[in-house]
Design a binder for these strands. Sequence first.
DNA 1: GCAAGGAATGAACACGTGTGCAAATTTGTT
DNA 2: AACAAATTTGCACACGTGTTCATTCCTTGC
Lengths: 335, 335
Amino acid sequence: MKHKEPRRRITASDVARAAQVSRVAVSRTFTPGASVSEQTRSKVLQAAEQLGYRPNALARNLNKSSSDLVAFVAGYQDNLYDASLFDALLNTLQKEGRRVLHVHVGASTDVSAALLAALDYPVAAVILAAGSIDASTVTACLRLNAPIIVTGSAAHLDTVDSVLGDNHDGMRLAVEHLLARGRRRIACISGPKNITASQERYAALIRHLGRRGMQPVATVNTAFTVKGGFSATLELLAGEGKPDALVCANDAIAIGALNAARYQLGLAVPDELAIIGYDDVAAAAWPCVDLSTIKNPIAERVAHLGDLLKRRITEPQASPMHIKIAPELVIRSTT
Amino acid sequence: MKHKEPRRRITASDVARAAQVSRVAVSRTFTPGASVSEQTRSKVLQAAEQLGYRPNALARNLNKSSSDLVAFVAGYQDNLYDASLFDALLNTLQKEGRRVLHVHVGASTDVSAALLAALDYPVAAVILAAGSIDASTVTACLRLNAPIIVTGSAAHLDTVDSVLGDNHDGMRLAVEHLLARGRRRIACISGPKNITASQERYAALIRHLGRRGMQPVATVNTAFTVKGGFSATLELLAGEGKPDALVCANDAIAIGALNAARYQLGLAVPDELAIIGYDDVAAAAWPCVDLSTIKNPIAERVAHLGDLLKRRITEPQASPMHIKIAPELVIRSTT
DNA sequence: GCAAGGAATGAACACGTGTGCAAATTTGTT
DNA sequence: AACAAATTTGCACACGTGTTCATTCCTTGC
């Protein structure tokens, strides 16, 4: 036991002492564009390399008004979509030299509480990809000088930037497609009632059917998961209504529905029952699933998020921007 | 435009001024166990609430030797397993008041480089769940005072803590099961050659077959993805060997293989070809997949990771601990 | 050779918070 | 009422870095 107390982290002063220069010279060496002679620079770099020195990001960010951190708030990834979104987003942010503070929103955790906890760090921005958020939390964030960018399922607050899929138009594509296929008895498995994406998609379905003088023959709410879709389908098909088509609020639900219909109830899909999902997750394209769905393009979404982030950071006072992503109908073999 | 310069974040001094107390009183109010009178405490809390104050975590962590941050290093989530692992882990860490700095390792990014970049923050620990890491990077981390805990696919370095699945025993279960089912011509779709989990599982397969005087009739390497498994299966079954069973290095590959065999090649699974995966991801249990596999328990793994993390932080000098998680055979309808 | 200009350097301060120590205040005891 | 003890308070410093400003050094042009 040579080191009883925990070993200190190497600091700029340590490097300065080893390289026989002042501490400021070390700071300048690691600050792009600062004025250092080539000679001292190399001395510093060599000493730093040998000691394993890296500038402490805490101290470095302390005297800036914000940091290189971006908070990403997301929920359970059972929905099969957020994982892919996060993957792509993380890749983009990291390339731009940002670091991601991941906030997880579970069943028990409150979105606002989790978000505020992460905001102890002066993040450059918050990307909110989970659940709804109320206006008071938004003002709390703004007071903490943390601009919010909303994507995925979240409230339509005019005061914050947003990149959202056009759920209204997506549902139009779904309804038109099913009607063109000759379906008339359309049922719906919607998502959780408190999630904005659920509400929007359901409202759009009602509206587009209503325009044609129709309405869903049955509706059930469930979680945005495969399990949820499975049990909801059993429940729904046990009741009245006898649908010939099932509109699901997302792909996870649709995959659950497909499995319940085909393997539990022995229904022929799509002959006896058509099923359409929403998002176009990777699993929807697997041959054993081969799900018709509405594509919610990830690459485009991430690109817009990156742009919006840059803009918001450089011009904090710019007026909020609301970007809608156009959905696409993807026809596979379940409709 | 009233505020031309970016609004400052509310600091303890602001609160102190508003509550007419000293700044130290504010600090003490937000420090559990500190000595403050009930009167000043409530004055401070009220002012803080009104101004929307939260202590700046950067400054708060600066004078401690490490922070409340934990770095989590993971790769693409195409493998269907890491997403679930991360989900569970994030939940646990957040409950304990830790915050997670997420480091993404893409195809182009180097593990070591990404890791070191995150270590600019004095994290309490690094949880490494992606790719391999060489000894020099480990020493770099240790010099930065950042203990590493390895899980998932990574090198077996004696100097760091680890929580690993027992790949050797898992493959024994797979081989014994296939032989009991009467299979004799076993082929293998292995993962990337530079990933430790691949190497270990493949080596175990060779060894367990070897003990019975057998060897794989064919082997192909591919990425840990559904797409990889799909194309690898087409390639493998086009060649010589005529296998009657396929051992896949993980579930994503197995799902790709299943889809290729059934829907592209028209093979009867399991009658003409048995398929077994590894990990037991959520999708393996879907009726349309219903994949036999070796379970790599996530809950147990996360629990051990949490314990190890706590131990390492409280006793930085403790000797490294290596925990093996026992795999389980899960028999479904593909074998 | 000399002045002027530019580049390199170091001292001092700022960022926002926690904490040791001594002073000030309150509480408890005889 | 007087004193000891316990609690609360505030000053000053520490954490590790970036940056302004004045100073010093070197270079260049005349």
